[in-house]
Each structure stands twice: as C-alpha cells, then as structure tokens.
Design a protein around this nucleic acid. Sequence first.
RNA 1: CGGAGCGUGGCGCAGUUUGGUAGCGCACCUGUUUUGGGAACAGGGGGUCGAAGGUUCAAAUCCUUUCGCUCCGACCA
Length: 568
Amino acid sequence: MRMSKMYLPTLKENPAEADVVSHQLMLRAGLMRTLTAGVYTYLPLGYRVIRKIEEIIRQAMNEKDGQELLMPIIHTSELWKESGRWDKFGPLMIKFQDRKGREYCLGPTHEEIVTDLVRDEIRSYKDLPLNLYQIQTKVRDEIRPRFGVMRGREFIMKDAYSFDIDYQGLDNSYQSMYDAYSKAFANCGLDVRAVEADTGAMGGKDSHEFMVLANSGEDRVAFCNSCDYAANVERAVAGEITNKNTQEEKELEKIHTPGQKTIEEISSFLEVQSENTIKALALLVDKEPILVLMRGDDQLNEIKLLNYLAADELTVVADDKFTEYYNSVAGFIGPVGMDGIKIYADKRIKDIVNAVAGANQEDYHYINVNPERDFKIDKYLDLRNVTAGDLCPKCEGQLEIKSGIEVGHIFKLGTKYSESLQARYLDENGREQPIVMGSYGIGVTRLVAATIEQHHDDNGIAWPKAVAPYQVIILPLGNNDDVKNKSEEIYNELTSRGIETLLDDRNERAGVKFNDAELIGIPLRLTVGARSLKNGIIEAKIRKTGEDKEIILGNSVEAIIDLLAEIE
RNA sequence: CGGAGCGUGGCGCAGUUUGGUAGCGCACCUGUUUUGGGAACAGGGGGUCGAAGGUUCAAAUCCUUUCGCUCCGACCA
C-alpha cells in the first residue's frame, strides 16, 4: 500500500480522552476513532490488525473441529425470559421495541440463541459432540466503559459453545478449548496465563480466564511463586496456616474508646495490631441483614460471600439503620451480644485470642474478645481476599499479586441453559437427556489493546509480526529519482511475493517518516536514501529490538525476506 | 449510581479568580527556499467558547438546569 493514498491519520500528541497507553496509541497510530464512550470506528490500519487476530483464532478453533457460524445481533426477549436472564442481565442489555411493541435486545452474549438453535436440530447422541462459534460484535451497556477498547460498549468477540452428551464429554471439549486458546494467544505473540476464575453471570462450574499481564489490567491475579497455581483474586484461596494463638484467654472487658471508629483508629488508640481486632461488617444480603466478621487487617471478598450464600445482591447497611437492624451503632458494631442476626466469620477469626471488637454502644469497645466463648458463629467461611505473601493453597510457595487483562474466559456451563431452554437429546437407551454445554469467549478488540500493552515503547507500538498490519515499511528519503526507483522496485517485488508492504511515498521529511513508522509499529523498516545507495546498500531496522542491518543491493529482496523470517 | 476532574477551530492548551466581545502551538491552504530524525520564511482559511435558560449596558468568564468526556468503586471479553 502506498501511504500517500492511505487513510492513516496519526497524531503527534496524546488525545486528552486517553489515559492508558494502549488507548493513546490506538488513537495516535490511526487505528481507531471514537464515536462516543466505549464505541469506536476501526480505521483501515486497525481493522487489518483485527482481521489478523481473527484469522489466528479461526485457525485454532477450526483445528479443534469448531464450526463457524453467524448469529443475529438482534435477540427476541422471549428466549432471554425463558432462560431467566432477561432480568438478571437487565441493565447490561440494550433493550428496545419494534413498531408493534415487541421487545428485543442487542446480544450481549449468545447462550440463549445457540441453545435455541441446537434444541431444534439435535435429536440424538449421535449428533454430539458439537462446537459452534462466531466472531461478531457484541453490545453491552457497560456501567463504566473504560480504557478505550479494553472495555467497550460495543466490541468484537469470538464466542464458542460446546455441546456434549455428558460431563466427561464436556471435560474433553473444555480441555480442547483450553488448548486452542493457549495456542491462539501464543500465536498472536502474547504472554498469556490461564488462571482459575469465578463463573459470574454465566453460571456453571469450572472456569478459567486467560490473562495478559499488564499494569493497566482491571483484574488482580494471584500467582504462586513456586508451583503453577494461578487464580483471579476474586476466587483465589490462601493456604491455611494453623498456628492457633496459645495465649491464655483473659476476661472480657468493656472500655471507653471515644470517637475511635475505624480499625486504624482503634488499633492505634489501644496500641494493638490490627490483626488482633475483629472487623464486623453490617451487610444486607438479598435485603436480609447479616453480620460478617473479618480479621481487622483482612478485606472481605464479596464474590466469595455471595457464592457461599447463593445470593445475588450485597449492599452495605446505611449508618442510620444500625439501630433498627442490629440494635447497634455504626463504628462500634461487634458480635458480642448480637442476637437474632446470622453471623458469618472468616476462617481466620477462629485463631484469634483476646481480640478487640465493637461493643454495640457509642464510644465503647470490648477487649479480650474470644470467638465461641463470647459469641456464637453460625458458620466459618473463607471470605478474605488473598494478599501478596499468603501461603499457596497447593504447595509451600507464596502468592504474588499482579494485574491482568482478561482476554479470554472459558466456562463449563453444564446443563444450566439446556435445562431452562429444554435442549435435550436421546441417549443410547432412548432416554431424554439434557445437553451438557460449555461456553468460551475471546475479546478480539480487547486483545488488540492487550497486545499493545505488551508490545510498545516510548516511540509507539511494536507489533508482533503475526498481528502486524503490514510486515515491512519502505521509507524513500529525499527527492531523488534513484531512490524513488529503487524503492518502487523493492516495493513491487515484495508485494508480488505476498509480503504485506507499505511504501511511504508521501512528500514528507525524513523525521516524519521515521516517527510514523515507529508509531504504527511495522516490524521491519527499510530506509532507501541517496547516501546508502551510493554505498550499495539499503538500511534495515527491526522495530522491536532496534537492531540495524544492512541489505546489500543486488539480491536484496531475498535478503529482506530472510531477515523478515527471523523476526518474531 | 456514589466520589473527583474536565468541556474554548481537526488535535494539544491559555484565557474564567478580578465580565469589556477570543488567543497560542501543531495540523490545514498558497508561494519561495529546503529535504537522513516531527523544516524556515511570507501570506491565508477555519471557532461565537458543550447545550439551554437567567443576571447585566455588556458573559468563554457570574447563577441555574442539562448533556457529554475522563478517572476511582459495583460489572465483564
């Protein structure tokens, strides 16, 4: 492609709207433009990258017998009501009516649609297993679109669905998707880690997320520093250390603690470690008040709590409701003397001896509080967020916490949708059985951003060759006929050999060309100038490593192709 | 939705405190000279300051409402 003819609007400065590197570079390098928050136009250069990634994903899916199809973006409300998700996904969906008043939504995901499709066609166990996938625009009215294409309201996703006769079949399908994903991400030139994940709104059992480690990541991931344990912090569990405090239990005592409401305040006021205080959280779980006890230095993991209680909604009790619900006072709430309220405690509370806790009275705390002796606990649960340095649950190692971008997520759905939507098949004995399903997603546009997060420097993007929009960029320097002719010659030969090549034939100064070439991140740059031609060479520079090479005129195209083959 | 910030030619910003009718850099157009790391000179086009209402002789600037954008939290590919 001749750059003089390209629609490639690059920017010298970072747009004010972008805060995150990948977002800034996608705008600056002319990959996309914004329509409104979380909604973008992909420009020619950006769309080429998207198509490269899509193709890599397609190949990996097809190798596992995935079959590509294309489902509608417009969904009827009936199917979503049938699965029960019309309300559950609720505000996340863009809903609308047609002229007759019939309700629709724009598809945020397609479990309902594929299940509906398959339930009409799959009759026999002989029709299974089956894996169907599509690459398509999804629409979600995100609460907070963020970081450009990282969390858009409209984004391209590859979603796949597997259908099996039983759970063993599902395990196989799941594993082959796990493998396909690992391969696809590696082929995109990304360093991706699979981690255990929570299943969230999709429902189902096992789940893994594929994480690109990057500082701008929205997820926190716990890794073991010695084994391969890795999990989203949402679900990560720390190994238990059983060092029950052997201190003798002292007598419970109420003491005056004027104005000391937070754990920090009370622990410095009483000169105790925060780990020896009991934090009592007043929470409404599906509207019902409960008390959750955490060690003072631990953070509640709300997802774990919701999962254990099989609840949907968790809110913090408003300060002015403390009297009504707990007969207590905000800032001084505690488990001692708390009647008629369910008390759930993190497992670490079990080991606490002579702790500090609120006395349910303005400006008073108890000291020497001991679980079981001084109050009853309905259930001990693992409720805390793991922190760096925690023991690994699988070995003797320690956990580290890093930020990650979730680029893929796979779920074992089981029969959740096949049962609600009645997708069944006849087994060998002629008995009707629910189809066992899995669902598998890759955020294609998010993957573009994640790739940039992992492959950039101060000068711009440095695409891995596999996803680069073009492989080679030729920069003719100066207004010189020899230079122009040589550049054209190489450009034509490379192009005819199937190498995607850009020719910067714009009437721009050298600096502009160099800077644009670096900004848009083409893996191999060739500089053709009068100076180098005189020396019988053209200059090559590898974008990622910055290495300079010389291509000797004569057999130059072969040499260029060889050099390109060495680049990752 | 809660908290914070912002909205002035295509992009980045100043001007707002102390009202007086819009400016700088980049980009763009024309010409000349340049041409290996974002050229120089000369000339030129483009904005009524997010929107609506109000105060005032006078509003980018003060007041009210509203819309949008960004960041922090609940959501997710």
